[in-house]
Every structure is written in C-alpha cells, then in structure tokens.
Write a protein that binds this DNA or RNA. Sequence first.
DNA 1: GCGACAG
DNA 2: ATCTTGTCGC
Length: 233
Amino acid sequence: MNDPRRHTWDVNIAEAMEIQRALAGLVQRSGRLENPRFVAGCDAAFTDGGACIVGALVLLSFPELEVLERRTLKEDVRMPYVPGLLSFREAPTLERLLLSLPQKPDFIMFDGHGYSHPRRLGLACHLGVRLGIPSVGVAKSILTGRIENEAGMVRGSRSWLIDARSGERLAAVLRTRDGVRPLYVSVGHMLDIEEAVRLVLECGRGRRLPEPTRLADALAAEAKRADLRAAND
DNA sequence: GCGACAG
DNA sequence: ATCTTGTCGC
C-alpha cells in the first residue's frame, strides 16, 4: 500500500482534492502535549508579481517564547491560489523549511485552517500529517462553516465554527484580545481542540495573533522587502 | 443555477 | 496574498 503522505506536490486540482480526502483519514484529532519546549510558526508572502513565494519559519522556546531560529526560503510558485487548496501552494516551501531544522519542534502553528476545511484537511492538518508533528491552525477568516454564537468580547471568550450541514464543530472562534475580531483555531494533528486553544492562548502576548504566527508573518514580510531591495541596487 | 471562497 | 495614504481611535 502506498503511503498517501508520500504524494507529490505537482498535481492538478482534481488530484489535489483526491489527495486531501486520502490524507484526511490519517489526521489525529486527539492528544495533549506533555511539557512542550519548542514551537515553530510558519507563514508566507509573495513577490515578483506573484511568481515567487517567500516562506518564513520561526522557532521559539515554550512557554517563554524567545526566538531561537528564523529562516526564510524563496522559491518559484507552482500552483495558483484556489480556495481549499492553499497547502498545495504554500506547503512545499514551508515543509522544506521545517525539514531544515536540526530537530523537530514539539508543535507547529500555521497561518490558516486545519480541520475547518471543506475536506477536513487544511494546511495545518496536511503538514502535521506529512511530518508527523502536532499542529494547530490559526486562521483570520472563515473558509467554511458558520459561527454558532458570537464569542464574548473579552480575551479568552470563545464560540464554535459549525459545519452548516452536519452541525459538527470545526473550529473554535476565539477572542485573543479584547474587542478585536476573533481568530479561528482548529486542530491540525495529534492534539484536540481544547489543547489547540490552550496553546494559542499561551502563545499570546497582547496581540491578536499568537507570537509564532505573528513573527513568521513579520519575517516573511521582512525577507520580501530585503529581496525586493536587492533586486533594485 | 446561485453564492461562498484560508492566504 | 497583493495593490496603497492617510486617518480614526485607544
């Protein structure tokens, strides 16, 4: 039997969807992390008119959240952005960055959804399964599903993102800061939703976005500017 | 057929 | 995501 985790990234839309359905069955939505020490944050930016992707990875100590590593990687874009297929566009680069680390982080936080995906295999689930590392999806907006009840306005308040058809809970709608728009926290792999929410809150430092994702986003933007600058002079 | 649609 | 200045508010 061929391990679906060994698939290629060079696929068309139909093949990508089929791969997602196969990998969705390997996602583990239960588990807790015993004394995690290292957390990785990933994000990406695009340059050269959308021809290139700049992946960014930050490694932080946990729970101190001190930056231990920052690295970026620029590559040619292979796939266009298609709702639901984000991982086929960003994961190749992010995966190379994660594999470049001397040691696996205890968990990873991604800028995007995990389980709260049409086929239950958002970016966080995809790379979590491919790498066999616990992961969490932290999205800024909804891909699929509806909000059950509006979350309270105080930090820590939460509600649920529900599947319109089954009523299944897809993600936690979490207020990570008083009065700001909520974040959509979903399971990626090897941990349950409560653990995912706990980790996101513990990685918060007064901002809407948790540090891993926030710093990765800033790093991607920084690398993009540096590259753009080097191209001119 | 008509909307919705992570980054 | 990206294109883009100033501006309203804490």
